[in-house]
Nucleic acid binder design. Structure first.
Length: 429
RNA sequence: GGAGGGAUGGCCGAGCGGUUGAAGGCGGCGGUCUUGAAAACCGCUGUGGGGGAAACUCCACCCUGGGUUCGAAUCCCAGUCCCUCCGCCA
């Protein structure tokens, strides 16, 4: 949620910033501002009514003590009480409406974010790694995987339908090795605390991250009268780890890493990435998350992005870093770097990680604060998240980049300790 | 699933429906004392929202949401979470 005070005092700036996202939210912003003004008008009236009621209450108590008649006072009390109730109802309605609008406004882009309406305006920041050259035509993983006997899309569709996959044998093992490798790296070398969170979260948690109320269609909701949803990313449970808390500022930054499956409806992506493991209803991810101070958050953003990049470097997978344009960023992000891994089978870079600073956007929704130096006034924390990495896409990259003429795949050295020292995945004979 | 018990400030804990934002203790901060420290003593010590340049001031908040009442931390209803016992269960 953006700061309501900004809408009140700097409407033009907010409008301009949101316009960079290729959105037109002038109507909503004007409505927020109007409701805000109404709110500020009701509050003094309400408080005055409450004060009158309170003072009268004290008089009644006194009169009762001395045994005086208090019938007139009681009658007056009724009037005051009605006024309070009326004003309270008015304030409640205005605040609810205002909140409803605010919850649907995206975050303001940071000043370092390039303008632009969509991914075409994204800017490459850096490249790493030498693109592999093959003396044969490299296969895409949707051919390579089944040929190797490690990926099975047809059987998955029988039990679950489209956008699911079964990993078999060395494929399942490679998947597990990637998870363990990433967790080991981030916990031992990058200082993250490992979290094993719930995979089902309630609606409030999703409001906190910005997935609700606007993107309900992207989520799998449990049947029945529960308000539980399957996590679309570990970002949700991790962000809510400290909801409604005031963190001792001396403990910041707090860095967490969690492995979870992720579940997404992928509504509206019909016909997009229908082949292979790129876009699935269920995938796995190792997620990085930080709580930090506003002063440190952009520094931490760089660090977090580097931590994700190091995974790719250790695996020897060529990639590039891209800064997303304002129009291509997610709802909650103020700034996002995407990491794109090279997929030779598709002759292109594909997103494998997205690292965002949401500034106070999620903290304001989830009420996450910190107290600098452990004392003084509590301030909203900044939150950061990033994939470190998407496991399925990493698996694809390992297969496509490591493939050999005979259809076998070389296991990256860094992964071998997690693969019983297996060096090559051989095709079935 | 059944039967009970509970939820109050950073923590523990008290609170006949009427100056109770809330006793007391612990912890924390500041001070006095001390060569230093401890002890002792004194003071301060929540969050949000209005107003104000500020000092300050007003309003709200005792799990959440309703209700009763002139007035609710205190009474009633619903819900959430925690604990104990029984049943079931990986």
């Amino acid at each position: 949620m953006i700061d309501p005070a900004l809408v009140r005092d700097h409407l033009d700036e907010v409008e301009a910033k949101l316009a960079e996202r290729a959105t037109n939210l002038q109507v909503e912003l004007a409505a927020v501002k109007e409701l805000d003004a109404k709110r500020l008008a009701i509050i003094p009236a309400l408080e005055n009514a409450r004060r009158l009621r309170k003072e009268l209450g004290a008089n009644i108590a006194r009169a009762k003590k001395t045994g005086e008649s208090s019938d007139d006072l009681l009658k007056q009390g009724q009037i005051f009480s009605d006024q309070v109730k009326q004003q309270e109802a008015a304030l409640d309605a205005v605040e609810q409406d205002r909140r409803k609008l605010l919850l649907r406004l995206p975050n303001l882009p940071h000043s370092s974010v390039p303008r632009g309406d969509d991914e075409k305006a994204n800017q490459e920041v850096s490249r790493w790694g030498k693109l592999p050259s093959f003396d044969f035509t490299p296969k895409a993983h949707w051919d390579l995987g089944p040929d190797l006997g490690v990926l099975d899309f047809e059987r998955a569709s029988k039990m679950s339908g489209a956008r699911f996959a079964v990993l078999v044998g060395a494929g399942a093992k490679l998947n597990r090795a990637l998870i363990n490798f990433m967790l080991a790296l981030h916990t031992k070398e990058h200082g993250y605390t490992e979290i094993a969170p719930p995979f089902l979260v309630n609606d409030q948690a999703l409001v906190g991250t910005g997935n609700l109320p606007k993107f309900e269609a992207d989520l799998f909701k449990m049947a029945g009268d529960s308000n539980l949803y399957l996590v679309p990313t570990a970002e949700v449970p991790l962000a809510n780890l400290h909801r409604e808390e005031i963190i001792d500022g001396r403990r910041l930054p707090l860095s967490y890493v969690a492995y979870t499956p992720c579940f997404r409806r992928e509504a509206g992506s019909y016909g997009k990435d229908v082949r292979g493991l790129i876009r699935q209803h269920q995938f796995e991810k190792v997620e990085l998350f930080k709580f930090t101070t506003p002063e440190q958050s952009y520094n931490e953003h760089e660090k977090l992005t580097r931590h994700a990049e190091i995974v790719l470097e250790k695996l020897g997978l060529p990639y590039r870093r891209v800064i997303l344009s304002a129009g291509d960023m997610g709802f909650a992000a103020a700034k996002t770097y995407d990491l794109e891994v090279w997929l030779p089978g598709q002759d292109t870079y594909r997103e494998i990680s997205s690292c965002s600073n949401t500034e106070a956007f999620q903290s304001r929704r989830a009420d996450i604060k910190f107290r600098p130096d452990g004392t003084g006034k509590a301030e909203l924390a900044h939150t950061l998240n990033g994939s470190g990495l998407a496991v399925g896409r990493t698996l694809i990259a390992v297969l496509e980049n490591g493939q050999q003429r005979d259809g076998s795949v070389v296991v990256p050295e860094a992964l071998r300790p997690f693969m019983d020292n297996q060096e090559v995945i051989e095709p079935p004979r």
